[in-house]
């Protein structure tokens, strides 16, 4: 029996909680129960976020959503929770209609989710270690690490071409420059061949990389020819490191320095949020007292009239 994949295990656990309580939100008649179920459902989905390697987003989900938005909702519930509104019945026909429509949508969506082969998990051994992004290769590749990793760069890499000894690409670590230089014979080695060599199951190079690529080093190293073609190297699947998103929000992309960070969108969203909150506060402010007084009087008169009519009918 194979070892339990804990990622899978926790995924199912959280998915079950999330879906179950979401269903509870739908089925509950009492508004307070609905709110509670929603809290649990969203909290569990935060667990799913952690599981998918998005720790930062998960933390935000907990803080903003569960901690803020839902508290707001609960306040709304409390402010409007008067007898008749706590649980309002919906007619059966509507339920049926909603179930039919929702069920068909779910069926469609699930079908879409599982029909796409790219979205399905591959077996770990079958997943390629390197992928070619260009077909042109120059005499020299430079294997560069985004983050200088002594474990990777402290080793000498040897690339063997399958069956072609004289044309074998070589990789030499240059400690002064902090990089690995892969040398191939021009016009005799194609990128596909290099990639094939690296990816060949059981090849010493592949083993070398697999052993030395640090955990969570997804696409970190890249074989980079002079003209910008890239041969990507991937480490085995593992957890993401949440700090990268935090840095990206501050403007620094550690996963791909060529791309810009998210500082400006982040700030825009912050300001947007602030404006919305001010607007919400304005909308929710107390109405003119006169109007409410008049309404209250009206309501009282109506109640008196009701009482009167009830007496007379009796």
């Amino acid at each position: 029996m194979e070892a339990i994949n804990w990622h899978t295990f926790f995924f199912y656990l959280f998915a079950l909680v999330t879906c179950g309580f979401a269903l509870a939100v739908v089925l509950a008649q009492n508004i307070v129960r609905m709110a509670f179920s929603l809290i649990v459902s969203l909290g569990a989905s935060a667990g799913l976020f952690f599981l998918a390697g998005a720790g930062f987003v998960g933390a935000m989900q907990l803080m903003i959503y569960v901690g803020g938005t839902l508290v707001l909702l609960v306040f709304g519930v409390m402010l409007t929770a008067q007898g008749p509104f706590v649980s309002m019945r919906t007619r059966g026909g509507e339920w049926v209609l909603a179930a039919v429509v929702g069920g068909s949508l779910l069926a469609v969506l699930l079908q879409v989710a599982f029909r796409n082969p790219a979205w399905l998990p591959g077996a770990e051994q079958q997943r390629p270690l390197a992928r070619v992004h260009t077909s042109r290769l120059d005499a020299q590749f430079i294997l560069e690490a985004r983050r200088a990793d002594p474990k990777l760069l402290g080793t000498e890499v040897v690339i063997q071409a399958a069956g072609q000894q004289e044309a074998a690409p070589t990789a030499v670590y240059d400690p002064a420059a902090g990089r690995v230089v892969i040398t191939i014979v021009p016009d005799k080695t194609t990128a596909a061949e290099v990639v094939q060599v690296i990816n060949q199951p059981g090849s010493p190079l592949a083993q070398h990389f697999r052993a030395r690529l640090p955990q969570g080093h997804l696409g970190l190293g890249a074989l980079r020819p002079g003209d910008g073609g890239t041969v990507g190297l991937e480490a085995p699947r593992s957890q993401e490191r949440p700090a990268r998103l935090g840095l990206a929000l501050l403007g620094a992309r550690v996963d791909d320095p060529k791309r810009s960070g998210y500082l400006l969108p982040f700030e825009i969203v912050s300001v947007h949020l602030l404006v919305v909150l001010v607007g919400a506060a304005y909308l929710a402010r107390a109405r003119r007292r006169a109007a409410t007084e008049a309404q209250r009087e009206q309501a009282e008169q109506a109640r008196e009239a009701e009482v009167l009519s009830a007496r007379t009918s009796r």
């Binding site: 998915a15 989905s45 949508l105 779910l106 790219a118 979205w119 399905l120």
Partner: peptide
């Protein structure tokens, strides 16, 4: 529990949440 989960599984959970929300609204 031994097989790894992929994007599809997450998307499926998302679909369930979405449909629950839509039905809730309806």
């Amino acid at each position: 529990f031994t097989e790894p989960v992929g994007v599809a599984h997450y998307v499926a959970v998302g679909a369930v949440l979405f449909v629950c929300g839509a039905v809730c609204m309806a």
